[in-house]
Design a protein around this nucleic acid. Structure first.
Length: 423
RNA sequence: GUGAUUGUAGCUCAGCUGGUUAGAGCGCCAGGUUGUGGCCCUGGAGGUCGGGGGUUCGAGUCCCCUCAUUCACCCCA
């Protein structure tokens, strides 16, 4: 029988890598605290309609990437969350959070599921950290969220990132622009590729971010969304940009940036890293003022948010050597037992040292002294404490400094005292 | 979903145009050092050559199918 392996697109994270996750998560949490964002955790699954309504049924995510199933024959379809925003919004509406305070700043670090073919920087189960600012979506709010995100990158030491930003205007702006695009592309319809033809019908904006080189020229000649924005929207967007400039956050305006989720409006942005290969988007987000209503909320609930791919973030960090200094320190003392008959005594000694607050490791497999010593060395112990017949009888143990190879004979109390003193 | 790629020891990989007992490095275990690691030397364990079928006197090597991997497209984090 063939061995089991992890489900396609899912992977295991072993201890040496978990250390990295702890590091990154720690930075995220501490920067979130600086900006006043609090953590929210929502269920991994939601009713399927939530995503259909929230993300948009024409999007790729909803159209072909969701893990959906019926919990019972007559039940409602539920779906493993493919993104966080819809769920967070649902939670806040359900709890009527905004009645407690007009503005909420939330962040999350959560696992998501999308049924795509895995490739570099893309898995079926992956993790995002992100933030949602609910209650305002003013330029200041957009800048708040963006600055939080960029400060996380900066604190982690990640460089070589590119922030692209665009304004999608409001619903009316986009409706007018959509028509203009349709008019522009219609004469070229025969030259469009299959997916673009479909988008011409459903959502012409999406043609803009096609990476098909054959369409590049055609796209470059298309009318620009910017020209269709109301003056207020332009002013709003420029205010966001000036906030960014004030904070020395570099950006590029990208008129072709539309993003694949239906709920975005006005400011939309994306951060890419040159370290990542084909899937180079490390994070993205924008405003989604109409999402709450889409989900059945009674009032308008302006909101801004972003999401960053944890795995992609960590791939980029790895490439830049940002984990190099992240070495977990091994146990302080390795208790080495001379012969099997003494192993019970060794366990007692180990236990006593641990109770005294020392990091202690001991062989549980009754291996030879040589093996025990090799193990002590391999896992980076600072000391070996030998337990042989002599030690057992005299109560004086041989403590060997594994760096200097010096060895002294001490009582257990003395061992504890010496090793407990820092330095 | 589409395309390409790869699949040989725990890991990284050799294995030329099909030829006899399938190799290396690292790791692991043991010995050299009868109570002491890292270096070195010696030895050892460990392989349904992803799986199934076919061609052939003979298949790790060629053909077909299948599963899996990786990268890319689509799209996204």
């Amino acid at each position: 029988m063939a061995q089991f392996q992890a489900v396609k697109g899912a992977r295991d994270i072993f201890p040496d890598e978990v250390v990295r996750w702890h590091h990154v998560e720690g930075v995220i949490r501490s920067v979130a605290a600086l900006y006043g964002f609090s953590e929210i955790r929502t269920p991994v699954f939601e009713y399927t309609e939530l995503f259909q309504r929230g993300i948009g049924s024409t999007t790729d995510i909803v159209g072909k990437e969701m893990f959906s199933f019926l919990p019972d024959p007559n039940g409602r379809s539920i779906t493993l969350r493919p993104e966080m925003t819809a769920g967070v919004m649902r939670a806040c509406l359900q709890k009527n959070l905004l009645s407690l305070a007009p503005v909420h700043k939330l962040y999350y670090i959560s696992d998501l599921f999308r049924k795509e073919r895995p490739q570099a920087g893309r898995q079926r189960q992956f993790s995002q950290f992100g933030a949602e600012l609910l209650g305002v979506s003013s330029p200041a709010a957009v800048a708040e969220v963006l600055t939080f995100m960029m400060q996380v990158f900066e604190t982690l030491g990640l460089h070589g990132l590119r922030l692209r930003i665009n304004s999608l205007g409001d619903v009316e702006d986009r409706a007018r622009y959509r028509e203009a695009l349709r008019e522009y592309f219609l004469p070229y319809a025969a030259d469009l590729d299959e997916s673009s033809k479909e988008r011409l019908e459903k959502n012409p904006l999406r043609i803009l971010d096609s990476k098909n080189p054959a369409l590049k020229e055609m796209i470059a000649g298309a009318p620009r969304l910017y020209a269709y924005l109301k003056p207020e929207a332009v002013a709003d967007f420029e205010k966001v940009l000036s906030f960014l400039s004030d904070r020395a956050i570099a950006y590029d305006i990208d008129h072709l940036l539309v993003r694949g989720l239906d709920y975005y409006c006005h400011a939309a942005f994306e951060v890419t890293s040159s370290e990542l290969g084909a899937q180079d988007a490390i994070g993205g987000g924008g405003r989604y003022d109409s999402l709450a209503k889409e989900l059945g909320g009674t009032a308008d609930l302006p909101a801004v948010g972003f999401a960053v791919g944890m795995e992609r973030l960590m791939i980029a960090m790895e490439k830049q050597g940002l984990f190099a200094t992240l070495n977990p320190h091994g146990p302080l003392v390795y208790v080495v037992v001379q012969q099997q008959e003494l192993s019970d005594h060794g366990m007692q000694v180990a236990f006593r040292l641990r109770k005294a607050g020392l990091k202690v490791e001991i062989d549980l497999a009754a291996r030879s002294m040589k093996a025990q010593m090799r193990e002590a060395n391999r896992i980076g112990s600072s000391y070996a404490l030998f337990i042989g017949q002599t030690e057992h009888e005299s109560g004086l143990y041989s403590l060997k400094n594994l760096v200097t190879s010096e060895q002294t004979s001490l009582s257990l109390d003395a061992v504890i005292e010496i090793l407990s003193t820092p330095g």
